[in-house]
Each structure stands twice: as C-alpha cells, then as structure tokens.
C-alpha cells in the first residue's frame, strides 16, 4: 500500500482523525517532516502565517499541547492569544458557544480548543467561520497527538505500514488511543490495545484494533510499545485495586520490553506517572523516543496550521 499525499485538506477544521483520508494523513506527515528543518535554523521563524490570529482556547489543564501549539504558531509568525478558563467569563457561567462567538467577533483565523467534553470542537466548527483545531476533547479524539506519534514511528521505522503497535493502559478515558487506533489502522499498521477489563471500553475493537487483557500478549513481537497515562484525576472511583497492583500487571518494566522486538520503540504521550504505567528505567532507556515525540509535536502542529490556512474548497474528485 503506497499512499500518495493529497494536494490539500478538504475540511476547514481538524476536529478528528476520523475526518481524514489516508492521503490527507500522508500530506500532513510529509508537510510536518519538512517543517522540522525550521527548528534547526539560526532564525527559527518563517513568515507563512504573518497576520493570522490564533486563539488558544484551553478549557482544561495542558502544558505540553498548549506550549507546542504556541511554539508552532510563533514559528509560523502567527499571533497567538491564550485563553484559560480561570479568571475569565467562563467562571461567570458563559456557555462555550457564547465564549467562542465573542472571541470570533474579534476575527481570529484559528481557534485551537482543548475541552473536557467530547464534541466541543465539532460544535464550534459548525458554528464558526474560523478554522477549529481539536487539541483534545474529553475521551474522544486528540488528532495532533496521533499525527505526532505517527510521524515519530514513520521516521524511526521508515513506514507505518505493517508495523505492529501495542497501546496499553487507560483505554477508557483516553482520547489518545482513539485517535491513534484510527490513524494507524488507516495507514496499514496493526494495532493491539491492552488494559485491565475495567479500563477497556466495550466495542473498542470496532475502531480497528485487537484487544488484549494481558500486557505481555499485546507487547509480544511488537515494533512499537505505547504506554498511556493512568488518568488518576479522571477516575471517579479506582478501576483497579491499587496503583502498585496496576504496575505489577500493566507497568512497562525492562523485562516486559524484552518481549517486543529488540529495537522496538517505547512511546508515551506524557505526562508520565513513573512507577505506575512505565518504569523509569524504560522511560529513560535507549529505546525511548518520548522526548522526540514532543519535538515532533511542534512540526505536526505547524503543518496543521499551514495546511488549514490554505482555505477550504469543495472536495476534489480524484
């Protein structure tokens, strides 16, 4: 399967991997790869989005993603406005749509949104003329994370096709797993997911993955092992008896890494709970590409903004 890159993105927004064809994914990854060179220049800035305004609407805590978008915007010469829900009218009870409409009245070109409810970016995308980029919505999607993971895998392994990717951990509360399964399966990789039954949502296999309940089964012979954070803050009640027991059964230890291919990549979207889902010796070990994921995140977000800035026409028949 050789996927030829599309000439442009069809939508005005990037709300999920679900909306993207393999050709559009290829275009995003190819463009991101070229964007990486900018970070190595003496002047790490290009004028492509000069005069464009981006509102970063983060209604939920985020360090990595918010910084990454902001760096991407600055490298492309766009003007960034940062919005966080504390200290604003959100605290006074304004609805999301009203907040967004008021922000749009100031003519931004992009709205990057992180929200704890699934579908919030989609609602904004329908209501607004600005391009909306989903920076994570509830347990639904996190498309730029999946794109940066795919870029990392492609660069390290040469291709996505045929790669066996094991994703383990908190599947029920993770938007990362959803976007990753959609993207990787669309690009010809085999995805295995694993977690304790209490954290495996029913029907997850319909996204296009194999489901395992033992970490060892998922890892065996894999090219990539991606660990997900146990989102302790989202768990109203614990879905496993203790953090220690979780580590014993689902923590990525050096011994378990040996079950994968000898040169398998170890990935984590961050922030890590060291000693819970991943052992420090693995997180900091030679197979870890966790910090490269962060570097690639900037390039991917630059590619998304650059390609969306091209406007949006009718889908072109192939």
């Amino acid at each position: 399967m050789i996927v030829k890159a599309a000439s442009h993105l069809r939508g005005k927004d990037l709300v999920g991997i679900d909306q993207l064809s393999p050709e559009e994914i290829q275009l995003l990854l190819d463009t991101a790869e070229q964007m990486q060179e900018i970070a190595k220049r003496p002047i790490k800035k290009v004028p492509a989005l000069r005069g464009k305004t981006v509102v970063n609407l983060f209604m939920e805590p985020s360090t990595r993603t918010r910084f990454s978008f902001e760096v991407a915007e600055k490298r492309l010469s766009a003007d960034s406005l940062n919005f966080s829900s504390s200290g604003t009218s959100v605290e006074k009870g304004e609805t999301l749509l009203d907040t967004a409409r008021n922000l749009e009245a100031m003519q931004p070109d992009f709205i990057v949104i992180r929200h704890r409810y699934a579908g919030a970016p989609h609602q904004l995308a329908r209501a607004l003329k600005s391009s909306v980029v989903n920076a994570g919505d509830g347990a639904h999607e996190h498309p730029t994370q999946a794109l940066l993971d795919a870029l990392t895998i492609r660069q390290k392994r040469g291709t996505l096709e045929g790669q066996v990717v094991a994703i383990a951990g908190d599947l029920a509360y993770s938007r990362v797993v959803r976007s990753n399964v959609l993207l990787l399966s669309r690009m010809g990789a085999t995805v295995r997911v694993a977690g304790p039954p209490s954290l495996v949502p029913p029907g997850i296999e319909k996204l296009g993955c194999e489901v395992h309940y033992r970490l060892e089964d998922a890892i065996a012979g894999a090219d990539v092992v991606m660990m997900l954070r146990i989102q302790l803050e989202r768990q109203g009640k614990m879905n496993f008896p203790t953090v220690r027991e979780y580590y014993d059964f689902f923590g990525l230890t050096p011994e378990r890494v040996k079950l994968a291919k000898h040169d398998a990549l170890v990935m984590h979207p961050g922030p890590m709970n060291r000693g819970v889902e991943i052992d420090s010796r693995v997180a900091d070990g030679p197979q870890s590409v966790i910090l490269e994921q962060v570097t690639n995140g900037v390039a991917v977000r630059m590619a998304v903004l650059y390609l969306l800035a091209g406007g949006h026409g009718e889908p072109v028949a192939d």
Binding site: S7, H8, D30, L49, A309, G310, G311
Partner: peptide, 12 residues
C-alpha cells in the same frame, strides 16, 4: 500562501 490562493491548496 494563504486563503487567497484560488486552488485551495497550499504549495507543497
């Protein structure tokens, strides 16, 4: 580059 391009496509 940008939305004033007729073809809706950013140059590669």
């Amino acid at each position: 580059v940008g939305p004033w391009r007729a073809a809706h496509q950013q140059p590669l």
